[in-house]
Amino acid sequence: MDGSGTITWETFLENAESFLRVSDKLLDGWTFHGEKDVPGQAYLARQAKIFIPIDDGMVNSAEATDDWCEELGSVLQEDPFVGASSPESPLITEHHILWSLSYSVPVLYFNAWKSDFSGMNVVSVEEVQKYLHHLDLKYTELSQAIHPIVGTPFLFLHPCMSHELLRNTAKSKNQLVSWLSSVAPAAFHLNLNTEYYKLT
């Protein structure tokens, strides 16, 4: 699909390469994976470890609170440098930026794990939606699907709204960054350094 509100694979690659140069300067951790010669078969990726308060909106039910307190308790017992009063727990986040062959727009996939290890204690769609609701965001097109390249379940922001976002940023020198700045707040702990905005 070509036309207003879309970008070509070639434009996606050019924008992504500029994005990566800034990431390398910032030591921000973004990398490119896959086959750049095959449209839609390469993607930008970044994994980060952060610490979040136990009451970060991720934990809203009594059952979830008990699970997280138990999990945090085991972390505290194993690490003599973490004080018993520490109200935080590790969270691994992973964000992938793909290009949709069907829609000709970027698509954001992401996962998070409430542990020090990818794949352990994965964050659910419901928890992320509660977290996003807690931030009072209006984006509701969050789903879970099999990642089209790596083949494992990921959360993703449906690309249906991306056409409008790309139309509104048609004059941007880097539409990938302009689009990403619009969707990042709904992607669960995806924070962009302001240096990226200089590309637009």
Rank of each mutant, 00 (worst) to 15 (best):
W179I: 11
D79F: 00
D28C: 12
F154D: 10
Q144V: 10
S182W: 10
D136R: 05
L101C: 05
S118M: 14
F156W: 10
E127Y: 04
L192R: 08
F32N: 10
L176W: 11
T11C: 02
V38N: 08
E141D: 15
L44K: 14
I92Y: 13
R167P: 01
P90C: 04
T200L: 01
Q129N: 09
S181H: 15
F12D: 06
Q47W: 05
W99D: 01
E164P: 01
Q175P: 08
G40T: 07
D136S: 08
S182G: 03
D24W: 14
F156T: 06
G40Q: 08
H33S: 01
N121W: 13
A184F: 11
L190K: 11
P153L: 09
L135V: 00
E17I: 06
T93L: 00
W179G: 09
S118D: 12
P106A: 00
H96P: 02
V105C: 13
V150T: 13
E63V: 09
R46S: 11
S143G: 06
C160R: 12
P80D: 08
C69D: 05
N111F: 06
H95G: 03
L176S: 09
S89G: 07
D67N: 09
L132P: 03
W30D: 08
F188T: 05
Q77P: 03
F117H: 14
F32P: 07
R21G: 09
H163T: 03
G151M: 04
P148Q: 03
G119R: 06
E126I: 02
S143T: 08
Y196N: 09
D2H: 15
T31V: 04
L190I: 02
P185Q: 07
L135G: 04
M120A: 04
E164V: 01
D24Y: 14
D28S: 09
L135T: 03
P53F: 00
E164S: 10
Q175W: 06
T6V: 08
G34R: 11
G73L: 10
K198H: 11
S23L: 13
V75L: 14
K36N: 02
S74Q: 13
S172F: 13
S18L: 10
L101D: 15
S172M: 06
F156P: 00
E71C: 03
L176Q: 13
E63Q: 14
A186S: 15
D79I: 00
N191T: 12
Y196S: 06
L137N: 02
V122N: 03
R46E: 04
T169I: 01
I97C: 04
I52Q: 08
D56Q: 09
D79H: 02
E127H: 08
P90Y: 07
